[in-house]
Computed example of a mutant assay.
Amino acid sequence: MTKTLLHIDASALADRSVSRQISARIVEHLAPAEVIRRDLSDPLPILTQDWIGANFTPADQRSDAHKAQLALSDSLLDEVERAEVIVIGTPMYNFAVPANLKAWLDQIARAGRSFRYTESGPEGLLTGKRVIIAIATGGTAIGSDHDFASGYLRFMLGFLGLTDVSFVTADQLGTPAETKLEAAQAQIARLAA
């Protein structure tokens, strides 16, 4: 049984969001002991010059202002580090991930904390976790030439050490949505708890 699960939703829609519905079903199916909830409909700040300056200042030399700049990022990374499983519900907006999900990834991609550079190249530090991504699209097929979301997510999460990534998809919902939702439910049923 999963002990701690981080549940992230990125859709700007509330009750009508297919990705939110699917991610909620995944969490219910896995029945974790604890759920950490992160709703990105309240957008995170984008990276600024001050944030970057604070991030690249060695930890033992950071001022109180630096620490304040990184406080949210530290909190987001704490959530990821605590979780055994991460469930991300996201739509595809304009062929890619929503800006709020990109902002979350920017906040957690920190050299020395979530990855490090070695002589043989970058090494992800957020290892040993399972990631399940519920992704919904209006007209774009997942894995098609126009899908710039799933490949980006797989690469970016892998860069951080999160390599056990699977997708539950409800794509091309512009076509008969009921069939797509039934297919997504079947994918959830096949997930090992």
Rank of each mutant, 00 (worst) to 15 (best):
T2R: 09
T2H: 10
K3D: 13
T4D: 02
L5N: 01
L6W: 01
S11F: 05
L13W: 11
D15M: 10
R16C: 09
V18M: 07
V18Q: 05
I22T: 00
R25P: 00
I26K: 06
V27R: 03
H29S: 14
P32E: 05
P32M: 06
E34D: 10
R37K: 14
D39S: 07
S41R: 15
I46A: 12
L47I: 12
Q49F: 14
Q49E: 15
D50H: 14
D50W: 02
D50E: 15
G53L: 07
A54F: 04
A54C: 10
A54H: 07
F56E: 07
Q61R: 14
D64P: 08
D64R: 08
A65W: 01
L70K: 01
S73T: 07
S75I: 02
S75H: 14
L76R: 11
L76Q: 07
L77E: 11
D78L: 08
E79T: 00
E81S: 11
R82T: 15
A83H: 02
V85L: 08
V85G: 03
I86Q: 04
I86C: 07
I86E: 01
P91W: 05
Y93D: 08
N94Y: 09
V97F: 03
P98A: 09
N100L: 03
K102H: 04
A103Y: 05
L105W: 00
A109V: 13
R113G: 04
S114M: 09
S120E: 15
G121H: 05
G121N: 05
P122T: 08
P122Q: 05
L126E: 15
L126M: 15
L126F: 10
G128P: 02
G128D: 06
I132Q: 12
I132H: 09
I132F: 11
I133W: 02
I135M: 13
I135H: 00
A136Q: 09
A136P: 07
T140D: 06
I142S: 13
I142D: 08
H146S: 13
F148L: 13
F148C: 06
S150G: 10
S150V: 04
Y152K: 06
Y152R: 08
L157K: 00
G158I: 05
L160V: 00
L162K: 04
L162R: 06
D164S: 05
D164A: 08
S166G: 12
S166T: 15
F167C: 02
F167P: 00
F167S: 03
V168D: 07
D171T: 12
D171A: 10
Q172S: 11
Q172L: 03
L173Y: 05
G174D: 13
T175W: 10
T175D: 12
P176G: 11
T179N: 10
K180A: 11
K180R: 14
A183W: 00
A184K: 01
Q185E: 11
Q185F: 04
A186E: 14
I188T: 02
I188K: 02
A189L: 12
R190Y: 00
L191G: 02
A193I: 13
